[in-house]
Amino acid sequence: MIINNLKLIREKKKISQSELAALLEVSRQTINGIEKNKYNASLQLALKIAYYLNTPLEDIFQWQ
């Protein structure tokens, strides 16, 4: 199981879903879906999320 901390980290950094989506060149709905565990981010997208949030990938998506 993967624990998804994207919403928590994004909100801590005061970045909206729309802002993050624009940086990543995806839709806001994609970010929303990832945060609600409706969609799994591809490895490429997960790495981009970590880069733009300046946060280690394993802090955003944790295996349990």
Rank of each mutant, 00 (worst) to 15 (best):
K48M: 09
I9A: 07
K38G: 07
E58V: 09
L6M: 09
S18L: 11
Q64M: 09
I9V: 11
L20M: 05
Q62C: 11
N40E: 11
Q44M: 10
I3F: 10
A41D: 01
K12W: 07
Y51G: 06
I2A: 08
E58I: 09
N54C: 11
L45H: 01
K7E: 08
D59I: 08
S16H: 05
Y39G: 06
I31T: 01
K48W: 05
V26P: 01
L43A: 08
N54K: 12
Q44G: 13
L43V: 10
L57F: 07
N5C: 13
A50L: 03
S18T: 12
Q62W: 09
W63R: 06
L57C: 07
L57M: 10
R28S: 11
K12N: 11
K48H: 04
E35G: 03
Q17R: 07
I34T: 02
L6H: 01
S27R: 09
S16W: 06
M1H: 10
W63C: 10
W63I: 07
N5H: 08
T55C: 08
I2R: 09
A22M: 12
R10Y: 04
K7D: 03
Q29T: 12
K12F: 09
I49Y: 00
E35R: 02
A41Y: 05
I15E: 00
R28M: 12
L47E: 11
S42T: 12
N54M: 09
I31H: 00
K14H: 13
V26C: 08
T55H: 07
R28Q: 14
T55W: 04
L24K: 00
L57E: 01
P56N: 08
N37W: 08
D59P: 02
L45K: 00
K14W: 05
S16D: 04
E11S: 08
N5T: 03
Q29C: 13
G33P: 01
K48Q: 08
A41H: 03
I9K: 02
N5L: 07
I49K: 00
R10G: 03
K13D: 03
S27T: 10
K13T: 06
N4Q: 03
K7Q: 12
S18G: 12
Q62K: 11
Q62P: 12
E11G: 05
E19M: 11
I31F: 03
K12G: 12
Y51P: 00
I49S: 00
P56A: 08
L8H: 13
V26F: 02
L6N: 01
I34S: 01
D59M: 11
Q29K: 14
L20G: 00
P56S: 08
A22G: 11
A21S: 06
L24M: 07
Q64L: 06
L24V: 15
S27V: 04
A50Y: 05
A46H: 03
N37P: 01
R10S: 02
Q44H: 13
E35I: 04
Q17A: 07
N54R: 10
Y39N: 07
K48V: 03
K36C: 11
K13V: 08
R10F: 06
I60V: 07
N4M: 05
K13G: 05
E58Q: 12
I9G: 01
E25V: 07
N32W: 09
K38T: 13
S42C: 06
I49N: 00
K12S: 15
Q29V: 10
Q44T: 14
L53D: 00
G33Q: 15
I49D: 00
I9F: 08
K38N: 09
Q64C: 11
K36L: 13
Q64R: 11
I15Y: 07
M1D: 06
T55G: 03
I49A: 04
K12A: 15
L6R: 01
K38D: 08
N37R: 08
N40H: 14
N32P: 01
A22V: 10
L6G: 02
K13L: 13
T30S: 05
A22L: 11
L53T: 02
L8Q: 15
I60N: 01
A21E: 01
E58M: 10
G33T: 07
E25G: 15
K7F: 06
K7N: 05
M1C: 14
A22T: 12
R28D: 10
Y51L: 09
K48L: 08
I9R: 02
I2N: 06
I3K: 13
L57Q: 02
V26Q: 02
M1W: 09
Q29D: 15
K48A: 08
K36D: 13
F61C: 05
K38H: 12
E35N: 02
I60M: 05
A50N: 01
S42V: 05
L57H: 03
L20I: 03
Y52T: 10
K36Q: 15
K12P: 01
N54P: 02
E58K: 12
M1Y: 14
L53C: 02
N40M: 14
W63S: 06
S27Q: 05
N32Y: 10
A50R: 03
A22E: 11
E35A: 03
N54D: 15
G33E: 14
N37D: 07
R28A: 13
E19Y: 10
N32A: 15
A22K: 13
E11M: 13
K7P: 03
Q62L: 08
A21R: 02
N54W: 06
E58S: 13
K38I: 14
K7G: 07
A46I: 07
E19I: 07
D59V: 09
P56E: 07
S16M: 05
F61I: 03
S27D: 13
Q29S: 14
G33V: 07
K38Y: 13
I31R: 01
R10Q: 02
I3R: 10
K36N: 15
E19R: 14
A22F: 10
Y39F: 14
E19H: 11
S42L: 03
Y39S: 08
K12L: 13
K7R: 14
A41T: 12
D59T: 08
K12E: 12
L57N: 03
T30E: 08
I15H: 02
K13R: 12
Y51D: 07
L43F: 14
I49L: 07
A22N: 12
I60G: 02
I60H: 01
I15L: 12
R28F: 09
L43M: 12
Y51T: 08
F61G: 02
M1V: 11
S18E: 13
V26H: 02
I3Y: 09
K14Y: 06
Q62S: 10
K14T: 04
V26G: 01
Q62N: 07
I3D: 05
L24F: 01
Y39T: 11
Q29M: 10
E35T: 03
I2V: 13
N32L: 09
E25P: 05
A46Y: 13
A46Q: 10
S18R: 14
L23A: 15
Y39D: 06
G33K: 14
A21Q: 01
Y39M: 13
Y51F: 14
E35L: 04
N4G: 04
T30D: 04
A46C: 14
L8T: 15
L6D: 02
T30W: 11
E11R: 10
A41Q: 02
V26W: 03
S18H: 10
N32C: 08
I49T: 02
I15W: 05
N5A: 06
L57V: 13
A46W: 13
A46N: 03
K48N: 06
Y52G: 03
T55V: 11
K14C: 12
A41L: 15
I2W: 13
R28N: 07
N32D: 15
F61D: 00
E58D: 12
A50H: 02
L57Y: 06
L20W: 03
D59A: 10
N32M: 14
L6E: 00
K12Q: 14
I3Q: 09
I60C: 02
K13C: 13
K13Q: 12
S16G: 06
L53A: 02
D59L: 11
Q64G: 13
E25Q: 15
N32R: 15
Q29H: 14
I31G: 00
E11N: 09
R28L: 15
E35M: 03
K48P: 00
L20A: 01
S27P: 14
S16P: 05
Q64T: 11
N37C: 12
I9Q: 04
R10D: 02
M1L: 13
A22H: 11
I34Q: 00
I2M: 11
M1G: 08
N37S: 10
K48D: 05
L8K: 15
I31S: 01
Q17Y: 04
I9P: 01
L8C: 15
L23E: 07
I2K: 09
S16F: 07
T55P: 01
S16Y: 04
T55F: 04
N54L: 06
A22Y: 09
N37E: 05
L24C: 15
E25T: 08
R28G: 05
A21V: 04
I3P: 06
Y52W: 11
E35F: 03
Y52N: 04
L8D: 13
L57P: 04
L20N: 00
A21L: 02
N5P: 00
N32G: 08
T30N: 04
I49R: 00
P56R: 09
S42H: 06
Q44Y: 12
D59E: 14
T30I: 14
A41F: 12
L43N: 06
L43H: 10
I9C: 08
L24D: 00
A50C: 06
K38F: 12
Y39H: 11
I34L: 09
